[in-house]
Design a protein around this nucleic acid. Structure first.
Lengths: 348, 348
DNA sequence: GGGGGCAGAGAGAGCGCTCTCCGGGTGCTA
DNA sequence: TAGCACCCGGAGAGCGCTCTCTCTGCCCCC
């Protein structure tokens, strides 16, 4: 297992070839599992590789193939008002990203493709784009859920294979994976109805985000199908604080609400806090359904009934789409839409 | 901003040189900010670069320099009993890793060094080692807290510059950064005593991790110095759920406990939940001190009094040590030990 | 037994960049 | 005005790998 002498350079193909008494090309064939190599020579070369402790130099290899066999999972945050530390704290506090990573790994690992995670808050966007342009990776799984995020467009402009984690805010030619948000909202509506709630209302997401918009319209149209047309809605911005405020606002205007759909778990947790303050029991007085099945849904009391998206499967599909577009250049942008399910816990 | 025609190859140095009417070498000098270039030529070349949309090919560059200007943050998990998904869930649920990343970024970003995060559960160790050996990165920030973790040794055997996040389980020649865990636990013990608590107990961390071990022994020896020798201890695994269970277990056996040291905030939050369920008031009936000063310490009620490690500063120091050993090969392994402090909030 | 076919190994030309030499031009000094 | 530094740009040799093309040699068939 002698790595070449001391602090010297790592061994090269050339040295393996010399050691094994064959040419560079043959060693290369062995390493790349080209079948037209005589078994005895193959074995001989393999012994030489082991003896010398040879590892291919990835720079030299990818200079020729233009492949690195690794892809990046870029987690983007457009907001400029956030500090780096806040952003990272949010990432490393939300199990969503762990599920995403697990789903992608499941597909990439068996293919021998490395996954590296890159947090990209707004001030770092420039550096991340540089990283991608330089060709460190073959493609990008881009996690970005804000409409105003410029990164998806910038990444597609790079002509680096990329797949987005949600329908892009603006129409750009990029593959993406998403859930049917409207259908998810319908599940929530039907669950509330099944619980006998009729005076239902919603705390919506921002109406300039696809997710916010679709969850509201899906909820309303599901209720309309059951003859309920008057559905109070107060918008929030997906933060816990906005959920608290929205709930306060809503109950001030509609004190008799008995069923509430909140467009994100984080806002739902805020709403629960308000409801507790107002002395409303959940689910007895008001049934609450969240959205996301985030860790907040489990951490709060009562635990949230919520709409779960198949995040792992989605991430796996993202990885598959990405590999396809890496391996078949000229591959057209495609999108895949998943269904979500209702997870019943205590709040409704 | 014309990137070379259509789906063709990205522009090369050569093309920029031709466009600007200079040699490759000069373009290279401009890009690498070599001072001995005439300003007018420099400007001319810069215009050409912008016009053509040139970006250096990192593979070609690092084939020559043997530098990639990026480092990996590898988060290791030795246990083979854990599934990938569990492991990732733990990472993306524990704010510790976010603080670590933020601290490292703070140092690396101004240096133009990219940081990529690589989760490494046991089954992936092999692949991660391959990634490192291939030379994708210049060095490794290795996060590993289990004594039995083989990764630190394997990484040092690779002769890739590396810095470890804690004292290595076995003595291996690697730089590391750590806090004085025992001293931290002593702070907790003395705080509980100062609060008049005498029937103290602890929810410990896993005893196969130096951190778990040191926090327990430090806590015990501090109490012993005050004549308290009988200290009930129940081990957890640093997760919230284990904290809940451990607290239940502990109070069933020692219902009169009035002071509790929990070896991590996450477990402490779990313990608080159990205490609330059992009708114990905190801090009146039981004073609770956590460890880590994670965001969970602020999010829970009552807010946790806890031991704060300067995680960001530690990660920054790790990054500095790593850069030093990348830039000065033959650099000797060094270690830096930080102090922790007690953050007094509501729970004790 | 000779020729065609084919399996399988080697030679060699790059991939795009950096960096060491060199050499030409400029300006200063004697 | 000749000589000489010195400054700066160019030429060219690789870095370690892949891959096409070439060539050798063996087998098979007529």
């Amino acid at each position: 297992m002698a790595r070449s002498t001391g602090g010297g350079r790592p061994p090269t193909l050339e040295q393996v070839a010399e050691f094994a008494g064959v040419s560079r090309a043959t060693v290369s064939r062995v390493i790349n599992a080209v079948p037209t190599v005589d078994p005895s020579i193959r074995e001989n070369v393999e012994r030489a590789i082991a003896a010398i402790g040879y590892v291919p130099n990835i720079a030299a290899r990818s200079l020729v193939n233009r492949r690195t066999d690794s892809v990046a999972l870029v987690i983007s945050e457009p907001g400029s008002r956030h500090y780096d530390a806040d952003f990272l704290n949010r990432i490393f506090t939300d199990p969503y990203f762990g599920r995403l990573t697990a789903g992608a790994q499941e597909v990439l690992r068996p293919q021998g493709v490395h996954l590296v995670i890159i947090p990209a808050d707004a001030p770092a966007h420039h550096q991340v784009l540089r990283y991608l342009r330089q060709g460190h990776v073959d493609g990008v799984l881009l996690i970005s859920s804000h409409v105003a995020d410029p990164l998806p467009r910038q990444v597609t402009d790079l002509h680096v294979p990329a797949v987005l984690s949600a329908r892009p805010g603006q129409p750009i030619p990029i593959s993406f994976v998403d859930t049917d948000q409207r259908a998810g909202a319908r599940l929530a509506a039907e669950h509330l109805l099944a619980r006998g709630r009729r005076r239902v209302a919603t705390i919506a997401g921002p109406q300039d985000m696809p997710a916010g918009e679709d969850r509201l319209s899906g909820f309303r149209s599901a209720l309309a199908a059951h003859g309920i047309h008057d559905v109070p809605a107060v918008p929030g911005d997906f933060t816990q604080a906005s959920g608290e405020a929205a709930a306060r606002d809503l109950l001030a205007r509609h004190p008799d609400v008995d069923g509430l759909f909140v467009a994100s778990d984080l806002m739902a947790v805020g709403a629960l806090r308000t409801l507790a303050e107002l002395g409303k029991r959940v689910p007895e007085d008001i049934a609450v359904v969240g959205f996301d099945d985030s860790s907040a849904a489990l951490a709060c009391r009562p635990q949230l009934t919520t709409i779960r998206q198949p995040v792992e499967e989605m991430a796996g599909e993202m990885a598959r789409l990405l590999l396809a577009s890496i391996r078949e250049p000229g591959h057209l942008a495609r999108s895949v839409i998943f269904n979500s399910t209702l997870v019943e816990r205590e709040s409704a």
